[in-house]
Simulated scan of single mutants.
Amino acid sequence: MLLPLLSSAGYAGGPYVVWVNFDHPSSKENINRIIAEFATSKSVNCDGNWKMGDSLLYMKKRPSLIDNELVESVFLKNDNPSKKRLNSALKNYKDIELQHLEGLDGIIVYTSVNDTKKMMSLTTGKRKIQSVTLASHGRPPAKADIEDAFCALLPPITRLP
């Protein structure tokens, strides 16, 4: 977990998002560092959709029901039963450390398949996966492209206040 959480009655806060990176080990940490630095930067707001101190990115502490096998089934195999399980895991997640946190708004996934780098997302309660191609032919994506894709794929707040 990267960011502190502020909350008030009648306000859902967020978005609260899970990050999963399926890149090759040699470049995975670089992509994770770019996202972590971007998500914690005071200047980032993604057109008002990312609120410093209020939005939450689960990078290192991922909900246990959202394992690699489930995420791969949804994002790389487009398996509909797995998509239902993932949606349920996102919607019903409760953080024991942040007792007032119930539910997550979505998941963003970074992957490299056939030398094409992509970011994809699924908003909780939805069936359609959104996708942005970042680079192809083995080229690494630019930092600005990664940051722009993160903002473009950021799910809206789906939880009730």
Rank of each mutant, 00 (worst) to 15 (best):
Gly53Trp: 11
Asn92Lys: 13
Ala152Val: 02
Ile96Arg: 04
Pro141Met: 14
Lys84Gln: 11
Tyr16Cys: 13
Ala144Gly: 12
Ser7Arg: 13
Ala39Phe: 07
Pro141His: 15
Phe150Met: 13
Lys28Tyr: 04
Ile31Val: 08
Glu29Pro: 03
Pro4Cys: 04
Lys61His: 03
Asp47Val: 04
Phe22Ile: 01
Lys143Asn: 14
Ile108Gln: 01
Arg139Leu: 14
Gly10Lys: 13
Leu56Gly: 01
Lys83His: 01
Ala9Asp: 12
His137Arg: 13
Ser88Pro: 08
Met119Ser: 02
Glu37Thr: 07
Arg33Asp: 08
Val18Lys: 12
Val44Trp: 01
Glu69Ala: 11
Leu160Thr: 04
Trp50Met: 06
Glu37Tyr: 06
Asp47Ala: 15
Val74Tyr: 06
Thr40Trp: 05
Val132Pro: 00
Glu72Tyr: 12
Lys143Ser: 14
Glu97Gly: 07
Asn45Cys: 07
Gly103Leu: 06
Thr133Gln: 11
Thr124Met: 13
Lys143Thr: 15
Thr116Met: 10
Asp145Trp: 14
Val44Phe: 02
Asp95Glu: 03
Pro15Asp: 05
Val74Phe: 06
Asp115Thr: 03
Gly13Phe: 14
Ser64Ile: 05
Glu72Ala: 09
Ser43Glu: 14
Pro25Gln: 10
Ala9Ile: 10
Ile34Lys: 05
Leu154Ala: 06
Leu56Ala: 05
Asn21Val: 03
Gly53Arg: 07
Val132Asp: 02
Ser82Tyr: 10
Tyr93Phe: 15
Lys117Ile: 12
Asn92Leu: 13
Thr123Cys: 01
Lys118Ser: 02
Val17Tyr: 00
Leu98Lys: 12
Gly48Ser: 14
Ala144Arg: 14
Ala39Gly: 00
Asp115Gln: 10
Met120Trp: 00
Arg33Asn: 08
Gly138Met: 15
Tyr16Ser: 14
Leu56Glu: 06
Val109Ala: 03
Met120Lys: 12
Gln130Val: 00
Leu153Arg: 03
Met52Asn: 08
Leu122Val: 05
Ala12Val: 12
Val113Thr: 09
Gly14Asp: 14
Leu76Glu: 13
Arg62Asn: 07
Ala152Gln: 08
Asp145Ser: 15
Tyr93Gly: 08
Arg33Met: 05
Lys77Leu: 12
Asn32Lys: 10
Met59Cys: 01
Trp50Val: 02
Glu102Ala: 02
Pro15Leu: 11
Val18Ser: 09
Leu3Arg: 10
Asn32Arg: 09
His137Leu: 12
Ser41Val: 03
